[in-house]
Each structure stands twice: as C-alpha cells, then as structure tokens.
Simulated scan of single mutants.
Amino acid sequence: MDTKIYTADDLAAAAKDIVDGKLVSFPTETVYGLGADATNEDAVKQVYAAKGRPSDNPLIVHVDGPEMVERYAQPLSDEAKKLINTFWPGPLTIIFNLKDNVLSKTVTGGLDTAAFRNPNNDVTLSLIREAGVPIVGPSANTSGKPSPTLAKHVYHDLKGKIAGILDDGECQYGVESTVLDMSTDQPAILRPGAISAEQIEEIINKPVLDERVHLSASQIPKAPGMKYKHYAPSAQVYIVDSTSDFKEAAKWASQQDHTVGVMATDTVLNDIDWPDNVETFSLGDTVLSASHALFAGLRHFDNEEEVKSILTQGFANQGIGEAYMNRLNKSAGQKHFNK
C-alpha cells in the first residue's frame, strides 16, 4: 500500500483511516506512535504484524483525557485523579484495572489491566477526538529497533505497511513515557521516563516502588519494554561510563578494522583527536539533549552499514538520566567499554 504523509491540515483524512481500521502513525512529545482503533481487534492485530511485535507485549492506549479512560477503567482512585490532574497531558502512562470485556485481550496482552496515556501533542489529541475512539500507540518502528523521533524514521521502517504518517516535526523528549502501575495497592514504576518517582511520590504522598524486571519467557509483561530486547541497532553499542574513558576509547577505535560510531556531548567530541575510522554524532551539551538525541543517533548509525561498533556516553542514573540510561543499557545489551 502507499503510505501517505499527513499534516495537521489532513486530520479528517487521518481520523477516517483510523475509523476504517487502518494504521496511522502519530506524533507525541516522546516518540512517534503507531496508531489503530483500540476498540477494533482486527486493526490492533495489524499493529503487531506491521511492527513484528510479540503478541504478549501489551499496547499503550492513547486517550484525549480522563473521561475517555473512565469508559474502560474501573473507578479511578483519588491518587490516580491527582496524578492525572498534575501530569496529563504529558509523558506519564498509568496502568489501571479494566471493566469486564471492554478492551480486547489483543490490546492488553491477555491481562485484565491496560496502560493509558494522554499525550501532550495538540495534533494527536485532535486526531483522537476526530476519530472518537482511543488509539493504541506502540512506538512506530520495527520491533526491537530504536524508537522514531521524526516522521522520516517511521517512513523508513513502515513504508508500505501502514496507511499514513501524521507529521508534526521532531518529538520533544526523545525517550518514551514513564509507565506507572496503579492497578495494585502499591504504585510501581515499570519503565522510567521524564516523570520521576520522586515527582509522583510528591503528589500521592506514598512511596513508589521500582519494579523494572526482566521477565521469563512464560511471564506476560504489564508494560512495554519489560521483557523483550529494545532500541538496538545492528551494530554493537558500548556504554562509555566516564568522559575520562573516551581517550582510551579513541585508541581502541583506532585499532578496529571497521568504522566506529561515537555518540557523545560536544565537549567530549571536541576534546579528542579522533582517528580516521571514527564517525561522530553529537548528543548536545546536557543529559536532556542527549536523551532527546539518543534514538536519532542510534538510527543514524543503523543506516551506516560500515559502522559495526558504537561508543555511547553514559550519564548519572538520576532524573532524565535514569530514562536515558535505561534505554541505552537495553540498546547495548548491558555492555560497557572496558579500558
């Protein structure tokens, strides 16, 4: 099929595709999502097929506000309402218990819970309202590859597989939303993002657990990113833990018989005389800019066949750096550069 590029002026056409059971990629403040009518099981199955996504990996349901959540979720607690009032629209996904038989098990991965998000993007909120249905939206990439932060990234992975891409420019954050499980008495972070546990605890006045675990083959994840390999380019990624290690990394790179990619801040890139077989990609000046650029950099080097290794700067595991390091560790398979 032809994959159309839509703009904000084409919302009616994009929404009609969704209502007609077709797939449309949409922008959010985090990454681009792959959208389908969450109430149409056949359409949702197409999402798994287009991405090559395991069928037990649940999908996030995008809504235009709490009223749409309440059609499907069991009554929201006061704590949940406080979080919604504080962080929505925004990069916080919340898992709730569902009413009986309101969403297909294809959406939930067979669970009785679902993850809901109210994205902070006016174009996508208008798309949801125009379609009149909640829209599932995993990242719009081939499963396991770096998430897309530009419409062209989506087109690269999914052209000919989906009806359209709603282009609203570059995403703001570049890493996916925080996933918070509110389906049990004890709130828990299942995936870190721009909203931290400390911010959540301040609103609900109770501790939030960290339950980021790697599940066994028989276990069903409650949220994306808990079970399967994610964010990985074809080249092997290595985390460089300290900026002082990059000089040794440059020496190591000079001894390789292939092109080595380097992703680091401008300070690091400008401080070293890189060998001829190194190609660099700027992560900007801060951990925030690095988080914004991480997936774009991984995708850049994934398109360079001669790049077989990627040395990538690590940051302190706090604030947005926690989300950055979570994605980087997964893309690297926990491999670090050893001097």
Results as ranks from 00 to 15, higher is better:
Tyr32Gly: 09
Lys330Thr: 08
Asp64Glu: 14
Leu158Met: 04
Asp245Arg: 03
Arg212Ala: 05
Ile203Lys: 10
Ala73Cys: 09
Thr39Asp: 04
Lys145Gln: 08
Asp181Met: 01
Thr39Leu: 03
Asp181Asn: 12
His156Val: 09
Ile220Pro: 07
Leu298Val: 10
Tyr32Arg: 09
Pro187Ala: 10
Glu41Ala: 13
Gly52Glu: 07
Glu322Ala: 12
Gly314Arg: 07
Leu111Met: 13
Pro119Cys: 01
Ala38Tyr: 01
Lys45Cys: 08
Gln172Cys: 05
Arg327Thr: 03
Asp37Phe: 01
Val260Glu: 07
Arg53Asp: 03
Lys251Trp: 00
Gln219Val: 03
Lys81Gly: 08
Asp2His: 14
Trp88Ala: 03
Val19Lys: 12
Arg129Val: 04
Ala36Thr: 02
Ala194Lys: 15
Leu111Ala: 13
Val63Ala: 11
His214Tyr: 10
Pro187Arg: 12
Ser25Ala: 15
Gly137Tyr: 00
Ala8Leu: 07
Thr86Phe: 00
Asn338Phe: 04
Ala80Asn: 07
Phe337Leu: 11
Ala13Val: 13
Thr39Ile: 02
Asp168Phe: 02
His300Leu: 11
Asp2Phe: 14
Thr178Cys: 09
Leu92Glu: 02
Ala163Gln: 07
Ala140Gly: 11
Asp167Leu: 03
Val24Gln: 10
Thr184Ala: 12
Gln219Asn: 11
Lys330Trp: 00
Met182Tyr: 09
Val102Trp: 02
Lys82Gln: 13
Val208Lys: 15
Leu83Met: 11
Asn120Arg: 14
Met1Cys: 13
Gln172Glu: 14
Asn277Glu: 08
Ser331Ile: 01
Ala151Asp: 11
Lys51Phe: 00
Val19Cys: 09
Gln256Tyr: 04
Ile135Gly: 05
Ala38Gly: 09
Tyr324Ser: 04
Ala151Leu: 01
Thr312Gly: 06
Lys82Phe: 02
Leu111His: 06
Ile162Phe: 03
Ser55Ile: 13
Ile220Cys: 07
Phe96Arg: 09
Ala151Cys: 09
Val63His: 14
Met182Leu: 15
His300Arg: 14
Ala290Pro: 00
Ser143His: 10
Leu328Glu: 07
Val175Asn: 03
Lys335His: 15
Asn57His: 03
Met182Phe: 06
Thr108His: 07
Ala253Trp: 04
Asp167Cys: 07
Tyr72Gln: 11
Asp276Met: 12
Pro54Lys: 10
His258Asn: 13
Tyr155His: 14
Gly174Asn: 04
Asp78Cys: 03
Ala36Trp: 00
Ile165Gln: 02
Gln318Ile: 14
Gly321Ala: 05
Lys22Asp: 01
Val102Arg: 10
Glu211Ile: 06
Gln318Asp: 14
Gln172Trp: 01
Lys99His: 06
Asp56Thr: 12
Ser183Tyr: 03
Asn205Tyr: 08
Asp78Arg: 14
Ala290His: 06
Lys247Trp: 03
Ile203His: 02
Ser289Met: 13
Asp157Ile: 05
Thr124Phe: 01
Ser331Val: 02
Asn270Ala: 12
His258Val: 13
Glu202Cys: 11
His230Leu: 04
Gln46Pro: 01
Ala293Glu: 15
Ala43Cys: 09
Phe337Lys: 10
Lys308Met: 07
Leu111Phe: 05
Gly319His: 07
Asp273Leu: 08
Ser216Leu: 15
Gly137Thr: 01
Ala38Met: 04
Ser244Leu: 05
Glu211His: 15
Leu59Ile: 04
Asp273Trp: 00
